[in-house]
Amino acid sequence: MSDLLLDVCHVSKIFSRGGLLSRQRITAVDDVSFQIDKRRPEILAVIGESGSGKTTLCRMILNLELPTTGRLVFDGVDLATIRTAADRMMLRQGVQPIFQNPFDSFNPMKRLERYLFLTQRRFLAATQQPASSKAAIDDALHQVGLSLKEVSHRYPHELSGGQLQRVAIARALLARPKLIVADEPVSMVDASLRLSIVNLFRTVRDLGISIIYVTHDLATAYYISDRILVIRNGSIVESGDAKAVLKYPQHPYCRQLRDAVLLPDLANAAADVPISMTGVKGTGEPDRRP
């Protein structure tokens, strides 16, 4: 057994759509490789614009999608070999997700604590007394700055986006995972609450859990992550230490991305927005017209 928690090895994903005659092949993820070390928990930011394949990559790591080519090995288990329900449960205990829209992360018709108790029961029933499960849930909620009292008997619409995202993190923590995959976890959280969620990731990492933080927001990625992958059109264009890559990007695309960040400062405000609209046409954005 190696020391790798996650080994993504030359993974590609090709979707084909259309009818029998005019099949279109779309390469969502193109030959992506990276590793996460088991001994050194880290926050790995995956940066990309919409359509860059970052969500597909997440879904493959969560075993919701199988790669077309390449291998994904989590903690010594090749995800392609998972067949039985028991194996799937094992994997889901090890890799937990956090989603983009906190308001849609929980069934609007069900109470919130239901998911916490389910996660606790299904993944850790063997190791714990039923009486202590309540305490464990309370503990997990305390880790994210909430308590069971605040959450129990509440429906999702009664909590704010920030609170819901905290509950989602607490739920993921309850399974005692080794890896958390967070797909745009703060893009729908209010600005005043966003940073406290981001700060939580650091706490989670210090608990020994690695996090894959998928985002398009370079500023929070710089703020929180240890390592960074920049993805464009399905392949990695630049990777390395987060601070170094974002401060001194090498690839032109990364430089372009960094320069497009609108800072809430006046230092680079206003003056550099071209008032004559030259350069409006030439974007890297693919036009969908055939």
């Binding site: 704010s160 920030g162 609170q163 600005a191 005043s192 609450l193 966003r194 940073l195 406290s196 969620i197 981001v198 700060n199 370079l218 500023a219 929070t220 710089y222 703020y223 929180i224 601070k243 974002l246 401060k247 960094r258 960040v261 800072l263 809430p264 400062d265």
Partner: peptide, 16 residues
């Protein structure tokens, strides 16, 4: 709001 190149820790606003 975090900025690239600024490593100072920041905290969110408490409460909702």
């Amino acid at each position: 709001l975090p900025r690239i190149g600024d490593d100072a820790p920041r905290c969110g606003l408490g409460g909702a």
